[in-house]
């Protein structure tokens, strides 16, 4: 039952990351709190995708689509911000 162990470890990591991001918001101030929150959120998302959703054992194609959707979201946000930041 190695898989089960992995899943439990993943879950622990997720809780630790959650703890870090919440405390960093309380303790740190602007640039660093933002960095910490973003880094923690990103790691949590990756852990869920790769281990809970088993992207690790999925076909390359699935991974391409998962990244693709994220990339498109990035288009939406960056190009929109490009407008607001240069007004």
């Amino acid at each position: 039952m190695r898989v089960v162990t992995t899943l439990f470890v993943t879950w622990l990591c997720l809780l630790v990351l959650l703890g870090i991001s919440v405390t960093s918001v309380v303790m740190l101030s602007l640039p660093w709190s933002l960095v910490a929150v973003a880094a923690c959120a990103l790691s949590m998302i990756l852990l869920i995708l790769v281990l809970f959703m088993d992207l690790k054992h999925s076909r390359g194609l699935t991974r391409v689509y998962a990244t693709g959707a994220t990339l498109w979201l990035a288009f939406l946000i960056t190009l929109t911000l490009a407008d607001y930041l240069t007004r």
Binding site: W72, F75, L79, A82, D83, Y84, T86, R87
Partner: peptide
């Protein structure tokens, strides 16, 4: 096709630089 949408907003109040890019 996903990177050009701002050409519908040239005179809508979007920034000039965004307009150039789109």
């Amino acid at each position: 096709g996903f990177l050009v949408w701002g050409h519908h907003m040239f005179v809508a109040g979007q920034s000039m630089y965004a307009g150039v890019m789109f």
